[in-house]
Amino acid sequence: MIELDKVAYSYGGGELLSDISLTVQPGSFHFLTGPSGAGKTTFLKLMYGDLLATAGQVRLSGVDTRTMSRDQIALARRKIGVVPQNSQFLDHLSVADNVALPLQVAGRDATEAQADLEQLLSWVGLSSHRDAFPPELSGGERQRVALARAVMMSPDVILADEPTGNIDWEMSQRILKLLVELNKMGKTVMIATHDLTMIRASKAQVQARVLRIANRRLQLAGADL
């Protein structure tokens, strides 16, 4: 469970987020929306310890991230799958190796998880690209590789930052479907997006809570969507 208690984040003398409180219940599905530059990415980064709150507390499994050591944060990230806005990969490794990367850094033998890896690649529809290298992939394929990598360690929480940005409608629906499937498996999912059509399209598939960041604060949205 991730809890935010009166969280604020300031950078360069200005406050980007202010007085944000939220409890992300296990198994819930959230959309986080708001205009560009509102602080959606910052919000997600606070949730997985990539940034530390300048006021208030972000608690991962009850522990304030500001009191966690770097190693503790690294270990906590293994339970949080992240699909970043501009997914980066190790370009000298194949798609399969990139997807298996979380296993490797956790010291687990990727060969033992070979079946899981193949299943995961098949799930995101990239079995035929397993030996390709990231620079050879399209935007949609890269996002699916990022999603596969994010769920490789079977995390409890999936945080996706604009996962459908810069990809076509059909592909964004495919990615949304994958995220909904993950939620149905019991995973907590939070998607940051400015794409309201995607949020509307999801209504038939999942019961989602829609949050909006406006004027540095978090608001519950929904009625106007």
Partner: peptide
């Protein structure tokens, strides 16, 4: 740097 960011993101410890 980008390699390190990816590694940190997937839970690599500094020592690794």
């Amino acid at each position: 740097r980008s390699v390190i960011e990816v590694l940190r993101q997937v839970g690599a410890r500094d020592d690794y």
